[in-house]
């Protein structure tokens, strides 16, 4: 049974790909997402960055013991960090000028409450969920470089490729035993690895923020 919306743990993310990727990555690391006896975060995708930014101060003032914020750094990292930071300082929280490379965790508005921020992909460089996932594609996978080349070639032939990295990953996912799995399901099916440096750092940040009591 997934955690209920009344859980004192809450994780805000931009979209459902973020949600399912995080959940299945954590499951790969042995996190028991379906154990009702364990406190687990209710993950809610806000359906976009503006909505996520709007929800941050309201959630930060809420009665959560633990609040996680997973956001893409798909603008200059410093700009995205400032956008999140402003929402939190606006409700009286102290937030460092720069994000912690291992994922930031600060004190919340209530006693003993904590708020964690993870900037995709790694709190250091600009990027997003797709950059995080691309680094989980096995280095030896011949299809991956082929998928990137094919996407580039398709673009050269006039195909619409709005987002090269995203298209490449979906192309690569199309060339699997079960073609076209979503990110989360592909993680569960172990098409992606689970142990890139970023993934391990994310898992440690998640574990620190959401103690499985």
């Amino acid at each position: 049974m997934p955690p209920p919306a009344t859980s004192p743990y809450r994780l805000l993310v931009e979209g459902s790909d973020d949600k399912h990727s995080m959940i299945h990555l954590m499951k790969r690391h042995g996190f028991n997402w379906d154990d009702p006896a364990t406190l687990r975060p209710f993950v809610n995708p806000t359906d976009g960055l503006p909505q996520l930014l709007e929800a941050i101060p309201v959630a930060a003032k809420g009665s959560y013991e633990r609040l996680g914020i997973g956001v893409d750094a798909d603008a200059p990292l410093a700009d995205r960090w400032r956008a999140v930071r402003d929402r939190l300082t606006g409700v009286g929280l102290e937030v460092p000028i720069e994000p912690a490379p291992d994922g930031t965790i600060i004190s919340g508005t209530r006693p003993h409450a904590r708020i964690g921020i993870w900037l995709m992909p790694d709190n250091r460089t600009a990027g997003r969920l797709e950059d995080f996932l691309a680094r989980l594609i096995p280095a030896s996978d011949a299809c991956w470089s082929l998928a990137q080349d094919a996407t580039r070639a398709a673009q050269g032939q006039g195909c619409r490729v709005a987002d090269h990295l995203k298209s490449s990953i979906h192309t690569w996912l199309a060339w699997q035993d079960t073609p076209g799995l979503s990110f989360g399901t592909a993680l569960r099916a172990e098409l992606f690895r689970h142990d890139s440096a970023e993934a391990l750092a994310f898992v440690r940040w998640f574990g620190r923020l959401f103690p499985a009591v």
Binding site: T6, R10, V58, A59, K61, G62, S63
Partner: peptide, 12 residues
């Protein structure tokens, strides 16, 4: 803020 909370199922 109450409306935002309602939209995102946040507890107030």
């Amino acid at each position: 803020e109450i409306l935002t909370a309602a939209r995102h199922n946040l507890e107030v």
